[in-house]
Nucleic acid binder design. Sequence first.
DNA 1: CGTTTTGTTGACCCATCTCAAAGATGGTGG
DNA 2: CCACCATCTTTGAGATGGGTCAACAAAACG
Lengths: 262, 262
Amino acid sequence: MVGAEAVASSSGWKAVNRSAAPLTAPRRPIASEELSGRIGSALRLVRDNLVYQRRVVHAGDRIYQAGEQFGNLYIVNSGFYKVVTLSPDGREQVVALKFRGDWLGVDGIARGEYDSDVIALDTGEVWVVRYDALLDASLSERALLTELHQAMSREISRDRDSLMSLCTLSGDARVADFLRYWAESLGDRGMRTDCITLRMTRAEIGNYLGLTLESVSRALSRLAKAKVIGFAGNGRRDVQIPDIDALGAFVQRSISPAGMLQ
Amino acid sequence: MVGAEAVASSSGWKAVNRSAAPLTAPRRPIASEELSGRIGSALRLVRDNLVYQRRVVHAGDRIYQAGEQFGNLYIVNSGFYKVVTLSPDGREQVVALKFRGDWLGVDGIARGEYDSDVIALDTGEVWVVRYDALLDASLSERALLTELHQAMSREISRDRDSLMSLCTLSGDARVADFLRYWAESLGDRGMRTDCITLRMTRAEIGNYLGLTLESVSRALSRLAKAKVIGFAGNGRRDVQIPDIDALGAFVQRSISPAGMLQ
DNA sequence: CGTTTTGTTGACCCATCTCAAAGATGGTGG
DNA sequence: CCACCATCTTTGAGATGGGTCAACAAAACG
């Protein structure tokens, strides 16, 4: 338990496992919390094999920024994050959503600078790891390398799924599929799925799904009318999903020719 | 030059650098051809550090298939390839196009089986590498690992660009941007960009861009009418691109409010 | 509280899809 | 070499999903 609860340094940074020189030789860190059960192996592997920093963030905080020099990878311990890219001509695009166990920053590996912004959607904590240190450590612990590769591979597959949604589904179905995926992911990581809180505005969701905010709003209304989702009393940002499969069924229905009715 | 031009084994496989036991210990291969200039470092690194097989493929051949057990990565030496995913309910989606220097198969790392099909669009050659062998070799030659990571990182960034096109551009602009990207990529790898051959049907292009084949056809007609592209005499699959920047300008014009005219 | 941001809903319009017909293209076998 | 066929491409006309504009309701915020 030595040095587990480290001193908080400036601006929301907590150094874990550092004594004098932070972020140098890979010494075994000792983190104490509840990392039990079958939580993302990424977190466990990093905790057990790497020097890392814990950084607490709040809604709106930027984890990194497009153009910034690459050097760190981040593992999400808690909180929700959006990944946003900006085209040269000013188009802004939400390209991914991240939460517990996800890696952030791999887009920076290719060119040596990040090419997206990552912004916290609520309060949370990310673990900061130096890419170099990760590579070094992976020499002695191959599982670490495997984990990174799997994470990147998963991200590629996920992006392709998004592409398929965009290309093949109607607006309503995209919203339904979005909720389905979101709930499913939460479930995979041991969180509640029957009542989820959308951390984004309709505009942000629409941006992510290639729809206008009005279309998102209408889609949600229709899903509610079809009893596929429900709205909790509190605002319209909490969505009740009594049955995830019903969302999938809705998507299917909207694909097959005779869908829509009932 | 020993064993460089290896015996062709059954069904289009050429083993490079194998003598008795193929694909085992990483022995130094000796490949003789023209790998010069600033061609994809992937090819050079693999050639110099790994045991690999060369596989010649023809239009329509499948490199690997969704569901197949993962084990190999592939580096494209020549030819063009489409990556296709199939959803459980039967939707088919072209999610990427690949050519010289690109890696194939990284989508298989996450789950231990590939989750896409890769299909050759014409005659070409891919180099087959065992993922395990690559990891082993990367212990002694870190550049190999760096190359793999950069390739995956690039793929993630590219997928995000596609997402942005899908979400923010009109149909015509998506087609223009597609041609622009295609030509630019060819240029990056030292190929001609002023007259490119589309290896896909309108239907395939449309599938990739989230458009119907009719919309693609109309978009191409309009681009030709606007003199942004031209059609070579030979069929309508050869597209002349006198000026790549003109394509970019077309995209810009279709974004800004007062676009379209002239 | 007022002020600002976010969400909902309606009416209208347009880009893209759908359906349909006809022209190219390319391959195959006689 | 040509006739034939399957596939691909182009183009038109009409239908429609989702965008746009606008008004208002509901939260969030200080």
